[in-house]
């Protein structure tokens, strides 16, 4: 646990470190990033000074808020992006509309659409790919190696645990209600990465959570991903608060971009989530539920 803490500290310090290391050979192509995780990686690789604009999903780190926002990555405006005079637009396969991207290419903007990352491996691949795109292969390799250490550590723990705890992931966005993170979501992928099973795998996509379903899910641990700090108030969800997992501290409430975007903070997310999983999941939950009767 102490080792992980150290690693975490190192990771958090990483952007600053990488930034100072890379300023040397920076040849300034102007970049627009239209994806939160891509933006985080660009910052982590120390090329934030080349960023001239980001989309609305880019909220981390803090400095990103000083950059012009070109809107949502599914509705990219051609003129808006072009007005920032970028040489390069880096985004994901989720970007739309097709026409804007084609037109940008036609007027000489390089457009890169990265695959969507939904596993630790894909996160590393994405970091390497971006490193190559912005001439920061070394920094990317270093970052990937750091993350790899954490991922390997997590994998070991998953193997040692033997059983897969049942985890409920809730998404709190927009101030009203919360949604279950069902199958075929980033939430599901995240739970897979920490060797947990999804407590609501029978639900597909993000669906509004009902109070009854929360009780019947009876998970071993609970994760709440907030789109903004303070969006989730446990006082509004008494049925969640009375679940054994919540009462016993097997819970985490945190930033949804860190948890679900599969960017450089994935290691941080995995370490935190691994930390809240019960040691002997099945035994404890049976005990707890019997206790509850």
């Amino acid at each position: 646990m102490r080792l992980t803490g150290l690693l975490l500290a190192a990771l958090l310090a990483l952007p600053a470190y990488a930034g100072s290391a890379s300023n040397a050979g920076a040849k300034g192509s102007r970049i627009v990033s239209a994806d939160g995780a891509v933006t985080e990686i660009l910052f982590a690789l120390g090329v934030e000074d080349r960023l001239v604009g980001v989309d609305t999903t880019s909220k981390y780190p803090e400095d990103v808020n000083q950059l012009p926002k070109v809107g949502y990555l599914r509705a990219l405006p051609f003129e808006g992006v072009l007005s920032l005079e970028p040489d390069h637009l880096i985004t994901t396969e989720e970007a739309e509309p097709e026409q804007t991207l084609q037109r940008l290419e036609q007027v000489g903007v390089k457009v890169t659409r990265l695959p969507v990352a939904q596993s630790p491996e894909q996160t590393l691949q994405r970091i390497m790919a971006i490193g190559e795109l912005v001439d920061r292969e070394e920094a990317a390799a270093r970052l990937a190696a750091e993350l790899q250490v954490v991922f390997t550590d997590i994998d070991k723990k998953v193997a040692a645990r033997g059983s897969a705890p049942k985890v409920l992931l809730l998404l709190a966005a927009g101030g009203h209600g919360v949604s279950f993170g069902g199958s075929h979501t980033g939430a599901d992928a995240l739970l897979k990465a920490i060797g947990a099973t999804n407590a609501v795998s029978n639900i597909r996509g993000y669906k509004p959570a009902s109070r009854e379903a929360i009780i019947s899910a009876n998970p071993d641990a609970i994760v709440v991903a907030e789109s903004a700090p303070g969006q989730f108030r446990i006082a509004d969800w008494p049925e969640l608060a009375q679940l054994p997992a919540w009462k016993n501290g097997h819970r985490y409430v945190g930033d949804s971009m860190m948890l679900l975007s599969f960017g450089p903070r994935l290691a941080e997310a995995l370490v935190i989530l691994d930390g809240i999983l019960p040691e002997a999941p099945t035994a404890e939950s049976t005990l707890a539920s019997r206790h509850g009767d």
């Binding site: 609305t56 012009p68 926002k69 070109v70 808006g80 007005s83």
Partner: peptide, 9 residues
């Protein structure tokens, strides 16, 4: 609509 929140719309 394209001016008020430029570069977004």
């Amino acid at each position: 609509a394209r001016v008020v929140v430029a570069p977004a719309e």
